[in-house]
Structure formats: C-alpha cells, structure tokens
C-alpha cells in the first residue's frame, strides 16, 4: 500500500475513535483502554530496542564470531524462532522463578518479546549484511581499515537501508505480540479489554475500540518506517552521485 493510503487509513481510524468517543456506549470504555494502550506502547518500544540490539549482536556473532560464539548465536536463534512467543513468556514467567530468577511481569514481557523478535531480526540483519556488495569489503581492506571499522563505517550503514522494510514488519509483529502479555497479568490494552468485557459484557463496543487502537498503533509504525526508508534511501542516492 502506498504511504498516502496508509495516512488516509490512520486519519480515518483516529477520526472514527474520536467520533465513537462522543457516544455514551463507547466513551465509558475509552479512558481505561487508552491507559492500557500506554502500557502496550511502552512494552513495544522497549521490546523493539532489545530486539534490535539482540538481532545485531547475534547476527554479527553468527557471521564473524569465533566458533563458540557462532554456536551460541545459532542456538539462540533456533530456540526463539522454533517455539511460540507465548510458550517463551510462560517459561520466563513460571519456570525461571523455580531456578531462583524472579522477574516482575513487565521485565518478563520486554525480555520475552524482545528476545523472540530479536531472533527473527537476526536473520534479516544477516541477510542485509550479506547483501552488501563484496567490493565494499575489498575497498575497505584496501583502505587499511580494521574489521571493526569496516563494519561500523562501511558495511552496517549500507546494510541498514536493506534492513528497514523487514524491521517494519517485525516491529508490527512485536506490537501484536504484546497482546500476549495480558496472559501474564500485565494490564495492557488486551487485558483491559478482557477485564471490561467480563464485567460489562459489552463486547462489540469494547473490541471495536481495541481493534481500532491497535490499528492506529501499527499504522504509526508502518508510516514511521516508510518515512525512515525514504530518508535513508535519499541519503544513499546523494552519497553515490557525490
């Protein structure tokens, strides 16, 4: 979808929420749901940061690390990609305390989702790094750069551009996975919805608002990533012609 269509959808859904907020059946639920949405957004942002860090570390480990590190990175990626996010969250929440490590639910949420998406992200970072032309490495070697310098100044900035679209999808995956944290007692958007649904049984207004709020959040991510992509690509074009 084009960025304009996305912006139209964003504006339309915000207007729809605003319109629904003027009606009694809906306005009752909105403040509580927005509170939940704030927590959802918080977990999403922190989870994304952790995911990016884990993805870059494990992709570099897998590509250039010594054998034990490569092995560790592979193990991390396979385990977190091979099991479901909910199982991982429950494991961190219920099983880890038995081994003497008790985390509060918020930390479990950020850690679980960040590690989960980070494992998927590792593959997309690896793909992006490998898509940088060989000549770039050779030129950097010719300029007598160290391996770290090459990665930091030549390879990663170029790989970054190829990474943006898949990361956009992963961030949306992460946003959607945050609904799972309602099952480990955090009162995020999904939890608030369920709680209100159980007490009032007004299913349609509650879930309509919830779906709209999630839609707004994910459209914000999509549009943000598209803009970032445009900016980054522009920089690349300038760099090449100059």
């Amino acid at each position: 979808m084009g960025i304009r269509t996305l912006i139209v959808m964003l504006v339309a859904s915000i207007l729809l929420i605003a319109y629904l907020a003027t009606r009694d059946t809906y306005s009752l639920f909105l403040p509580g749901l927005l509170q939940g949405a704030a927590l959802t957004a918080q977990i999403t942002v922190l989870g994304c940061l952790l995911a990016v860090a884990m993805a870059i570390l494990s992709a570099l480990g897998k590509l250039y690390g010594p054998t034990p590190i490569r092995w560790l990175a592979n193990l991390y990626i396979e385990i977190f990609r091979g099991t479901s996010a909910l199982v991982q969250l429950f494991w961190l929440f219920f099983v880890l305390p038995q081994f003497g490590v008790s985390l509060d639910p918020f930390a479990v949420a950020v850690l679980g989702l960040g590690l989960n998406i980070g494992a998927y992200g590792a593959e997309c970072v690896r793909g992006a790094i490998q898509s940088v032309a060989r000549g770039q490495w050779e030129a950097a070697t010719a300029l007598n750069m160290t391996r770290i310098q090459m990665l930091r100044r030549i390879i990663l900035p170029q790989a970054f551009i190829a990474m943006i679209p898949p990361w956009g999808n992963l961030f949306i995956e992460l946003l959607k996975s945050t609904a799972l944290v309602s099952l480990i007692t955090l009162s995020d958007l999904a939890f608030k919805a369920q709680q209100m649904n159980q007490t009032t049984m007004k299913t349609i207004p509650i879930f309509t608002l919830v779906l709209l709020i999630y839609l707004v959040l994910s459209l914000l991510i999509t549009i943000g990533m598209r803009l970032l992509e445009q900016r980054a690509a522009k920089g690349l074009a300038r760099g090449r012609t100059a």
Binding site: I172, L175, K176, S177, T178, A179, L180, S182, A190, A193, Q194, N197, T203, I204, F207, V210, L211, Y214, L215, S218, L219, T222
Partner: peptide, 16 residues
C-alpha cells in the same frame, strides 16, 4: 486483519 493482534481477534470471534 494483519495489523491487529490474533489474540484480540480470537476474543472478538469468541465473545461477539
């Protein structure tokens, strides 16, 4: 459908 969580969709179908 793609930009809203599956969990919410499950609840939606089950309760609506």
């Amino acid at each position: 459908i793609r930009s809203t969580p599956l969990l919410i969709q499950i609840f939606f179908l089950y309760f609506v």
